[in-house]
Design a protein around this nucleic acid. Structure first.
Length: 253
DNA sequence: ATGGCATAATTGTTATGA
């Protein structure tokens, strides 16, 4: 079973690349972030032609998440059930798998209102796990967490020290989510680190490999034990009109 | 201290991202 996670930075701008990537990669499940589209404009038909069902939680202009799957998702949950106006979370059951797709807020600037929202949102995500999920289930929580765990996930740690992506409070919030009972499967397969999932469009970020790893596939222990491989498809960051994020792909036995 | 690039909403400029 192949599962992937990708912040596409607009599913309309990425339409052709997404379709080509799906045909080439053939994941069973794909969690998408930053759709930047309302549900009515989501490319359901084009994805159906490739054999994918879609559970969608869209939003105009910003945010938006979806889970694509070969078999239809059941028990779809959009958001945390609070009054959050931003579409950043979707959960569903796909066969025996419990899938959670998250787009954690960036936070903009440490100390800002958006920063407070980011930390509160991460706390809310942990509360969702506590309330509605079992660490004994086959569960994956994946998405763009807008946090680099530690220095192994940052090409130039000094440039990002105390930024919203690397601040100790964001990292602590991330570890609190992991502590619920999740394994960072990419880290398990690449303990040496220094591999990245996001590169700034500006300042030749990708050619210089000035990246950060902020996109994750987290799995419960019983599922992580079955993870045979985890990779970042950095080739997808190359060429014409790429997303600034590369997909993370995990294979489970 | 700021912009650099990309995207969406609009058609000149702003908000946001990471």
């Amino acid at each position: 079973m192949k599962l992937a996670c990708w912040n596409v930075n607009s599913i309309r701008a990425r339409h052709d690349r997404l379709m080509a990537w799906l045909e080439r990669t053939e994941p069973d499940v794909l969690c998408l972030q930053e759709l930047k589209v309302v549900d009515e404009s989501f490319p359901r038909e084009a994805l159906a032609e490739l054999g994918y069902h879609a559970a969608v939680f869209g939003q105009k202009t910003y945010n938006g998440v979806a889970v694509l799957s070969r078999t239809e998702a059941k028990q779809i949950v959009r958001g945390f059930g609070d009054d959050d106006p931003q579409s950043r979370f979707l959960a569903a059951r796909i066969g025996q798998l419990h899938v959670l797709c998250a787009y954690v807020p960036n936070g903009q600037e440490v100390g800002s209102d958006k920063w407070a929202y980011k930390l509160a949102w991460m706390s809310r995500l942990r509360a969702y796990l506590d309330e509605y999920c079992s660490a004994d289930d086959r569960l994956v929580l994946c998405g763009d967490f807008n946090v680099a765990r530690d220095e192994l996930d940052v090409a130039r740690p000094d440039d990002w020290a105390d930024s919203v992506l690397c601040h100790v409070d964001a990292r602590r919030a991330f570890e609190t989510i992991l502590d619920w009972g999740l394994v960072d499967v990419f880290r398990e397969h690449h303990p040496e680190g220094k591999l990245y999932s996001w590169w700034d469009y500006r300042m030749l970020g990708f050619p210089k490999n000035n990246g950060l790893r902020i996109d994750y596939v987290l799995a419960t222990k019983c599922l992580a034990e079955k993870c045979a491989a985890a990779e970042i498809d950095r080739d997808e960051r190359k060429g014409t009109k790429p997303s600034d994020h590369a997909p993370v792909v995990a294979e489970f036995k």
